[in-house]
Amino acid sequence: MNTLIFRTFAPFITGLMVVFSIFILLRGHNEPGGGFIGGLIAASAFAIYGIANGVPPVRRAIYFHPHSIAGFGLLLAALAGIPSMVAGVPYLTALWTYPVIGNVEVALSTPLFFDIGVYLVVVGAITGIALSLEERHRG
């Protein structure tokens, strides 16, 4: 897979896919999409980058170890249920707030943070697997 065309285009494809995955993540509450599928798209973006340019550039690019990303996602998802404790409702009950930021109403909710957590868990776990398989593949 080490062709010039692929190596040249891989960073653009990767960037595009990561942006798309975040789009999928955010539209997920009301329309098809969500953290899991978004995370898969982002993980395949990193895998493409890894196939084209090798594993070390990917590890440098994502900066944190994939497992740490997954751990942070798990933490975020678990903590997304905690505001329910203050509100006097059961764990993981959806709580919504609609702050207006510069004339735009932004819907913020605890499921959003839960979904971002899921996204990060999937990105971290699948990227970790893909990268270590790729490393082994190259010997």
Partner: peptide
């Protein structure tokens, strides 16, 4: 919840 939260933190501090 407590072991999940601490497990996630420990995953980040391997």
């Amino acid at each position: 919840l407590i072991p999940i939260i601490f497990g996630a933190i420990l995953l980040m501090m391997r």
